[in-house]
Design a protein around this nucleic acid. Structure first.
Length: 488
RNA sequence: CGGGAUGUAGCGCAGCCCGGUAGCGCACCUGUUUUGGGAACAGGGGGUCCCAGGUUCGAAUCCUGGUAUCCCGACCA
């Protein structure tokens, strides 16, 4: 029994915080709203980075790095962009401290005030487009396909580890193109990469769609989003890819000469996923016993536990199995710590979401088998030592598939249709989930529905079927259903 | 940024009302016995009681001011 994790049924938020804490993913820090990502949590992020980074490179992107600070004036160049971010910026006003003349400690030196304040980047469009201006002259300079791995700061009023922190880690891609079509194709391609990553690596099914005017990125013409349904019936925006049109090119005066010698503004995209994905990963699979990780992203895939403690005979079998698994590219730990007993270790590794646990004791050796437990279903089986490595390899694939199937089933069971506002409200107020409903396409209606139900339009699904209908609120004509849900 | 609460050992808390040598559980260290689902016993270490001022012979406790965090709202990847 997991004695320290609050059950989901009792308090979902507390459960989430318990998992983050007890699985050793992150700690609160001395800084409000900022967390310390601990080695185990960071290892998951590193795995995510590896996969995404190689996908970006496969699609011809390169990495670069731009400054943490942005001159205040840059932010105001693009009108909607300022509006979207101004309220949550950390600002640097001085560059020096000095001893407090009236006692101990330090004060900000008033003589060290900056000419122009610097904003700690909430996102890098402005500093990057200011730079692109110098890089782009001709259609031959295009496209520019750059990604950066960075931290950003958004001064949020309320924070939760991974899901919303004042500082977070992410990647942000910023691309420049000669044509509208090419930029849109780029934004869509990245959208596909994000969706594939969510499903095939995280085992987290997502709805691919477009944001409504009200929900889209400040400064974008279109925002493509992936939305995942969490266990508590809320939706998590897991990644976005924006078609920025010529907004930033115009704001920063980035033009190029096309092949017929005319000046044009560049077309842009930007796209990002953040450490928020880790929050999504937790809330998609984990249970009351702790974290559950899909094998493809688990820092440790298999743990071998000697029962009750290591000895020469067990060590030999365990080490051999470890080598065999490692030769298949599987990460393995043989836990020879003699201070804690097997039961403690079982609970510990379940808490940490290690996909497969192998227990080997004297009795097992006599019978020529080992006890293999899978974290996702918590099933245990005795499997012959002969061929055990291959069995485990298969089992890891099975777990990966099972987690996706399970989440797909959950989403299916928690996706409903609503044809009137009362139904919409009762679903949202009850178990939550995705609600597919008609909407008349106006911001006013969306806001009114939000006010009444707390649900927002998560997206207009890309695979939206043309379907004549009436808006759930106004009864005005609608051409297709959109997805409502409460959001994180 | 509005409403409410809380800061005492690494973590979780009691003590405060009614001022008098700072405690409990977990964790940690040492030892012994244990060991197939979170071991037991014995001994031990660890504290600017959020900060500053005040009242007092004496403050974790009372008073004033600050500050931080958490919860509920509004705002948001």
């Amino acid at each position: 029994m997991a004695k320290e994790i609050t059950p989901r049924s009792q308090d979902y938020s507390q459960w989430y915080l318990d998992i983050v804490r007890k699985a050793g993913l992150a700690d609160n820090s001395a800084v409000r709203g900022c967390m310390v990502i601990k080695p185990y949590g960071f290892a998951i992020w590193e795995k995510m980075q590896q996969v995404l980074d190689s996908e970006f490179k496969r699609t011809n992107h390169v990495n670069a790095y731009f400054p943490l600070f942005i001159p205040k004036s840059f932010l105001s160049r693009e009108a909607q962009h300022v509006e979207g971010f101004a309220k949550e910026c950390a600002v640097v006003t001085h560059h020096r401290l000095k001893a407090d003349p009236s006692g101990n400690g330090l004060i900000v030196d008033p003589d060290a005030k900056l000419e122009e304040e610097l904003i700690v980047r909430p996102t890098s469009e402005t500093i990057i487009w200011n730079t692109y201006k110098d890089w782009i002259q001709s259609y031959r300079d295009l496209p520019v396909l750059i990604n950066q791995w960075a931290n950003v700061v958004r001064w949020e009023m309320r924070t939760r580890p991974f899901l919303r922190t004042a500082e977070f880690l992410w990647q942000e891609g910023h691309t420049a193109h000669a044509t509208r079509e090419e930029a849109i194709a780029e934004a869509r391609m990245i959208h596909d990469i994000y969706a594939d990553f969510a499903e095939n690596w995280m085992g987290m099914p997502v709805i691919k769609g477009i944001k409504t005017e009200n929900e889209r990125f400040a400064g974008a013409e279109d925002t493509y989003t992936i939305e995942a349904l969490m266990q508590d019936g809320k939706s998590l925006q897991a990644g976005t890819s924006h078609f920025l049109g010529q907004n930033f090119a115009k704001a920063f005066d980035v033009t190029f000469l096309n092949d017929s010698n005319t000046q044009e503004h560049v077309w842009a995209t930007s796209w990002g996923v953040s450490t928020r994905l880790i929050g999504g990963l937790i809330m998609t699979h984990s249970d009351d016993e702790g974290l559950v990780l899909p094998p493809k992203l688990a820092p440790l895939q298999v743990v071998i536990i000697p029962v009750p403690k290591p000895d020469a005979e067990i060590n030999e079998v365990a080490e051999k199995l470890k080598k065999e698994l490692e030769s298949k590219g599987i990460s393995v730990k043989y836990d020879t710590d003699e201070k804690s007993r097997p039961g403690f270790k079982y609970a510990e590794y379940e808490m940490k979401g290690v996909p497969v646990r192998v227990a080997i004791g004297k009795r097992d050796l006599e019978k020529g088998h080992a006890e293999v437990a899978r974290r996702d279903t918590r099933e245990k089986n005795f499997i012959p030592l002969e061929g055990l490595g291959a069995q485990i390899e298969t089992l890891l694939d099975e777990i990966q598939n099972n987690l996706l199937l399970k989440s797909l089933r959950f989403r299916q069971e928690n996706t409903h249709r609503a044809d009137d506002i009362d139904t919409l409200k009762s679903i949202v107020d009850g178990r939550g989930g995705f609600v597919s409903a008609h909407w008349d396409g106006t911001v006013e209606t969306e806001l009114k529905i939000k006010e009444m139900t707390k649900a927002t339009i998560r997206c207009i699904p890309l695979d939206q079927k043309a379907e004549e209908g009436k808006c759930v609120l106004t009864g005005n004509p609608s051409k297709g259903r959109v997805v409502f849900a409460k959001a994180y």
